[in-house]
């Protein structure tokens, strides 16, 4: 226990980095996820195909491979970013594929009549999606999106592979000095669990608030 207290500054710093990674990549994934969903349900075949290709690509690659590939591969063709920014972008792009699939299932759960009524009133495709379909779709997928967000928190632990010192990486470094893996990793594990529990709590509240009668 005392080992955690002795190294509290480093671990705390790691926790802050984990939170930054989580928040920033969540925002990125949510925005991209909505865009990809819009492409996947659009009436334009080319956009639909692009959306599908996006999802298939990023769902079928391990995140770690993607991180390493982007961080070490792209500099060879002259594109180089700092580790933190790279981690945020890669995690966001990766998670967006999953978010898009969850959102699409929500879109499919909205009855066809809603889109027809929107079109019949003269709303464009984009307006129907934004004003009528997505708000209803979102409400039905709050729970899966919450689960994906928890998964995203856990994914940030891979950022250490490209030299971002997040909570897991900080814990690993402390353990190299102290060799007390149980205390150090149970401690950092509990911190992840606390963040996940907070997300779960918010998700539950949101779901109850947003539930709509049909």
């Amino acid at each position: 226990m005392s080992v955690l207290l002795d190294h509290l500054p480093e671990l705390w710093q790691g926790l802050l980095v984990t939170l930054q990674l989580t928040v920033a990549s969540f925002v990125g994934a949510a925005v991209l996820g909505v865009l990809v969903t819009a492409m996947r349900v659009s009436p334009v075949p080319v956009l639909r195909a692009l959306g599908t290709a996006y999802v298939e690509t990023f769902q079928n690659l391990p995140l770690l491979v993607l991180l390493v590939l982007v961080f070490f591969g792209l500099p060879e063709i002259g594109i180089k970013g700092p580790p933190m920014a790279t981690a945020i972008v890669v995690i966001a792009v990766y998670q967006a594929a999953y978010m898009a699939e969850a959102l699409r299932s929500g879109v499919n759960s909205v009855s066809k009549g809603q889109a027809e009524a929107a079109r019949a009133l003269g709303l464009t495709f984009g307006q129907s999606l934004r004003l009528v379909i997505l708000p209803q779709a979102l409400r039905t997928v709050v729970q899966p999106l919450g689960n994906l967000t928890i998964q995203l928190i856990m994914s940030t632990a891979l950022a250490g592979a490209i030299s971002v010192v997040d909570l897991t990486e900080a814990a690993k470094r402390v353990n190299l000095q102290e060799a007390q893996p149980i205390a150090i990793f149970v401690g950092s594990g509990l911190a992840y669990a606390a963040i996940a529990a907070a997300v779960g709590y918010v998700t539950g509240r949101l779901e109850r608030r947003l539930v709509i009668m049909r």
Binding site: G122, Q136, R139
Partner: peptide
């Protein structure tokens, strides 16, 4: 496209299943 949307704005439609926006 937009031209069609413009036309539809001038043509009101009432459906069997109402299709009011539920949210």
């Amino acid at each position: 496209g937009r031209e069609l949307a413009k036309l539809r704005a001038d043509v009101g439609m009432v459906f069997q299943s109402f299709n009011l926006f539920q949210h």
